[in-house]
Structures are given as C-alpha cells and as structure tokens.
Design a protein around this nucleic acid. Structure first.
Length: 584
RNA sequence: GCGUCUGUAGCUCAGCUGGAUAGAGCGAUGGCCUUCGAAGCCAGCGGCCGCAGGUUCGAAUCCUGCCAGACGCACCA
C-alpha cells in the first residue's frame, strides 16, 4: 500500500524520507505537506528559507510528477517551514474512486510490508456459570475488531476464544445449586420463562458469592469446606457434581453462542480451560530445565532478576493455576497451531501476569514469546461508579439488549411498522443496537476506562455508531431515489466543490488509517477515521445534490463519489464488526 | 512501600508517537427542511493540555520530581 502522491514527493525531494510527508491541518493550505526541519542541518539554513528555496526550485519541475501522463500536482508553495503541495483534484479522484467502485481498493492492504504472519487473536474468554455483562462486551468488540483489521491488512488471523469452564467459581455456583437454592425467592429457583439459563446460573453464582461473604466466620469455613468438596468432585470427573457441571456448562456455552450470534462475533477456534492438562508436564520440564524452582512447598518461576516478581505455577497442594493453564495454552498455540504471533485481549489488571507468562515462555525456549502481545484494556464503569454484584447495578447482556431494542423501536422504527416486514424491523433494530454498542466500546483508546452511560449511547447523536449507519443509509437512499449506482467512467474531474474534495481525500486515506490501526493494534484509530469520513460525506451531502446537479455529467460524478463513500463506510464498519442496515 | 496505566473545553473523548492557530461529540446559544432521509448541516461560545522543572530551533507529546485517580504486586482468574 503506497500513496502515489507521497511517492512522487519523495522522488522530487529525495533527501526527505517519505514517512515525513503529512497532511496539512487546513485543506486551504494544500493536500500534502513536507516539513523542512529535517533538512535544516544538511542545508545549514533555517527551515522557512529551505521551504522557500525548494518551492522555487520545484515549481518549474512540478510537471515531472505524473501519473498516466498527467501531472499529479497543480501547485507547490512554501508556508513558513512547510512545503505544501496541492494535488490535482481530478487525479486524486481517478486514483481513488474507480478502485473503490470495482473493489480492488479493498485488496490493496493485503500484501503487508512485513510479510504475512500467522497470528492468533484470543479474546472474550468468558467464564461459564457467570453472567455476561457490558464489561465483557468491550473485550469482544475490541478483539473481534482487531482480528478483522489484521486480516484486512494481510495477516493470517485465527480468532480464538478461551472458555473458563473449570475452577472455584464453578464449584461455588454448583454448591449453591445443590444445597442452597431454597434461599432464593420461589420464582428465582428456576430460570424464569424466557430467561437465558446461562444468565440464571450467573445469578446463582452471585448469590453464592454474597452468601459466602456474608456468613459469619465459623459458618463460612463450613461452607468453604463444602465448596471444596464440590471442586474435588469436579476435578475427579466423577459424581453428581460432575454430571451437573456437564449439563450446566452447556447452558452457559449456549448462552455465549447466543450473544456472539447477536453481536456478529466469530471464532475460528474454542479453547477450554478444562482441556489444558499439559500444564503439569510443562512444570516438570521447566523444573528440570531450572526455569522453575520449589518454594514454600509450591512451584514457580523466580523472575526477580527481570523485575517481574514470582510467578506461581503449582500450588503447595499440587494443583494447577491459571498461569499453568496459560502456559499449556501457549504451547498449543505455538506447537499445534503453528502461530508466529499471539495476541491476548485481556483486561489491564492482568498486565503483570502476562509479562510473567511471556518471560517464562521465553525461558522455556519459545521464540514466539517475543511476539506475544497483551492488548490491555480498561474497565467499563457506570456514571455512578464501578459495577458490582453487591450493589446490584451490573448491566447484564440480556437487559442491555432488551433496553436498546425497546428504545430503538419506540423512537425510530415504530413509524415503519406495517410498511416494513417485522423481520426487517427486528434485524434493523439489531444492527443499530450492535453498531451503537460496538462503536462505543471500540472508539476509545483501549487503555482508558470507559464510562458506559446507557442513555447517552442510546440517544446516539454525533460521534456514534448510529451516526455512521445513518450516513450509510443516506447513500442507499440516493440509489433508491435515482434507480442507479455510481459508475467508474464518470467524469471525476468535475468534482471540485470543497466538500467533494474533502470527501475524496478521506476515501483516499482510508487504507492508510486501516494499516495504522493494524500496526498499532488500535481499532480506535479506524473508528476515528470512519467518523471523519461519515462527517465529510454528510457535509457534502448537505452541500451538493446528485439529483439536482447543474449538469447530468456532474450528477454522475457525484453519484460515483457517494457510492464510493458508501462502500468504504460499509467496509470500514465491517472491520469494526458492524453491519449497517440498508435503511433505518 | 514498589510497579503499571490514566489526568486535555461544563461532560465524554481525539491529537497520526516532537512540528502550522490544540481538535471532535454531548450539553447550552442562534440559524437551515415545497428540492436525493433534519438519526442531518452551518455559525458563534467554551482551553494556565494536573502542577513544577528540564531537553530542544520547537513540547499536550520526550526526561525528572511532585499531586490526584484506577489497577497490580505467591497458592483467585
């Protein structure tokens, strides 16, 4: 992927590396800018003088920069220390729009500069027997978007899920289920009609946790012993608890499938904590290699020398830990799946854990350890603070979906009832809700805490997924009104209105932004670009008309432009996991 | 105590890893629908970029030290 305009500037001014070429803050200044600071030393002059000198030098030679026999630039001038180039509007349109209309534009990033790599993106990682809430949505939105963006940029991506289907939390849930169900009000003792069974299990888990926390000390010890017995049964793979585990685990998995289906998230492979038995063997091998040591009856890696403390891999009672399973999982990814690179989309609170795991993998001799990345993201909070099951303010997936659906239908789609088929109303509603939630989760820098304000996200004006969808549907409405689509052979040189030029520029730069989002693993960069694109479209749409264009040829050119905008918008939204509706 | 992350407009956030006059959205103010969808567009208002030093021709961005918040630091995941 390379920009012919940037390449041309690089040829005209070979002393300056092309990556320095930037976009001026105001299109009135030009389309490309070359800062001359880097030349100050070599030329022993002040940057403004160099810019002026270069402008004078290049002006007569500007015609040398050509594409298909026509000049790429129409002007070059100095503005302070900057050398600004004005691109030929027709050339930029011709270099951009036809390739979008024939689809080839979307293949341009396929051959990455660094070569194609096999990369696994692991995300979501829900625990069975626990409730899935808005906080978990951030992970899915981020991971799924990243997987799509990397694939768009030519990486061989395997999207993986890693289900937490073993451990104390499950023992707690089943312990409550078997012994204390009676503590709940009658109607809560079984899943309510229409209630998701996985979510009901989550309620049991929460009830169990609160019950344990609230019990007086002696009583709590009795309870904990009971939970321990359940855990024992689970690990032995026998007994009533084990059978119950199998049954209820399936409920949770069904529930997750339902969520992913609604969100449109896909996984190529599902890992389960329950299948990570290789951990114990890895610990043995690590002990033999001296990577692990025994300490206070337990086994772990002393990483003090690396400033990473101590990573415990085997408890004193000989049982394995989260870390042990992570080592087994990494081994699977590298050895069985042949991954070159591994990305873990996991909350920022586990930063130290992953640094430790990667360090241990390195010591165990995995070269891929250096290409393992923990994509850390911040918490999802509510305006009133953190979500907590004790406070009872956790927004569960089903409640979120329900509230969004109701709002969207009431405020926007009800008007179409009867006119549209019910299935279309439902599907449009789903797409808008998914757009709102996914865009909201992904538009922010991953490292920052997100304050989730349901009302704001639903009202959804301005920089939101709904706005982007709306822009897309407006393009579609042009097609409906005119009964035709854009043609690549339109006379694109007619697109001279400032809003048209600005939109062309956004379209031209989309691939560059997609590449940066992949390289930096920050889907929010793509979200920002899409918003700028939708904004540029909306401006142009308000300023110029296809139907009432001054000439038919201009109308055709605008149709091609808006068609291209719609296609890039759709492609970009897909990279964020959002499928816009055709009308809304 | 040590470590990581975060402090930018009333609120929620961008700022392409050192460059032009720090940008958006929301809210509040004022405009724009007999013309392809007003879930939209336009205008003005709103800033000691947490504080103090330092590096540099040049700092919201890099370094140091404070202050505030979040998270983490051995048998939970």
């Amino acid at each position: 992927m390379s920009d012919p305009f940037v390449n041309a500037i690089a040829r005209l001014v070979p002393e300056v590396p092309p990556h320095l070429v930037e976009r001026p803050p105001d299109p009135a200044l030009g389309d490309y800018a070359l800062p001359c600071f880097a030349l100050a030393k070599a030329r022993r002059k002040a940057p403004p003088a160099i810019a002026a000198e270069l402008a004078a030098e290049l002006a007569p030679r500007l015609g040398e920069a050509q594409h298909q026999g026509a000049p790429l630039f129409t002007a070059v001038e100095a503005a302070g220390p900057y050398l600004n180039f004005r691109a030929d509007a027709g050339q930029m349109a011709r270099l951009t729009l036809p390739s979008i209309l024939d689809g080839s534009y979307f293949q341009q990033n396929r051959a990455p500069a660094g070569g194609s790599r096999k990369v696994m993106v692991e995300y979501s990682q829900p625990n069975t027997h626990k409730a899935f809430h808005v906080g978990h949505m951030r992970n899915v939105a981020l991971g799924d978007a990243l997987a799509r963006i990397l694939a768009y940029n030519g990486q061989q991506v395997t999207a993986a899920n890693y289900i937490g289907d073993v451990g104390t939390h499950i023992a707690k849930c089943l312990w409550f289920y078997q012994r204390h169900l009676g503590r709940l009000p009658k109607e809560k003792q079984t899943p309510q009609p229409g209630q998701d069974r996985g979510e009901w299990l989550g309620e049991l888990y929460t009830a169990a946790t609160l019950m344990l926390e609230d019990a007086p000390k002696e009583q709590r010890e009795v309870y904990q012993k009971e939970v321990g017995q359940v855990l024992q049964q689970l690990e032995s793979g026998q007994g009533e608890a084990h059978a119950l585990w199998q049954e209820t685990r399936a409920w949770s998995l069904e529930s997750f499938q339902d969520i992913y289906r609604w969100l449109g998230a896909r996984f190529d492979h599902w890992f389960y904590e329950s299948e990570m038995e290789a951990g114990r063997r890895i610990v043995e091998e690590g002990l033999a290699k001296g990577v692990f040591i025994r300490s206070e009856g337990a086994v772990g890696a002393d990483l003090e020398a690396d400033g990473l403390g101590f990573l415990l891999v085997l408890k004193a009672d000989g049982t394995t830990l989260y870390s042990t399973k992570d080592l087994a999982l990494a081994e699977m990814k590298f050895d069985r799946f042949g991954m070159d690179e591994s990305v873990y989309v996991v909350g920022a609170e586990q930063t130290l854990h992953f640094k430790q795991v990667f360090k241990v993998l390195e010591k165990l001799g995995y070269p891929q350890a250096g290409r393992s990345v923990h994509l850390a993201y911040g918490l999802v909070m509510l305006p009133e603070g953190k979500m907590s099951s004790r406070a009872g303010n956790v927004i569960l997936f089903s409640a979120l979906r329900e509230r969004m659906n109701r709002f969207i239908v009431e405020h926007y789609l009800e008007a179409h009832r009867g006119d549209w088929r019910d299935e279309e109303i439902d599907e449009t509603c789903r797409r808008i809700a998914v757009a709102a939630i996914r865009y909201g989760m992904v538009k922010q820098d991953p490292s920052k805490v997100i304050v989730f304000n349901l009302e704001d996200w639903l009202v959804a004006e301005g920089d939101t997924g709904v706005y982007l969808c709306y822009a897309y549907t407006r393009v579609q409405s042009i097609f409906r009104a005119l009964g035709k689509f854009g043609r690549a052979d339109a006379d694109l040189t007619l697109l001279t209105h400032p809003t048209e030029r600005a939109l062309i520029r956004e379209l031209h730069d989309f691939n560059r932004a997609a590449e940066a989002a992949a390289r930096l693993m920050r889907p929010n960069l793509l979200a920002g670009t899409l918003f700028a694109l939708a904004k540029a479209f909306s401006r142009a749409y308000a300023a110029v008309s296809v139907k009432n264009a001054e000439t038919p040829a201009l109308g055709e050119a605008r149709l091609a432009l808006f068609d291209a905008a719609g296609r890039v918008l759709k492609e970009g939204l897909e990279l964020l996991g959002i499928t816009p509706p055709e009308r809304m």
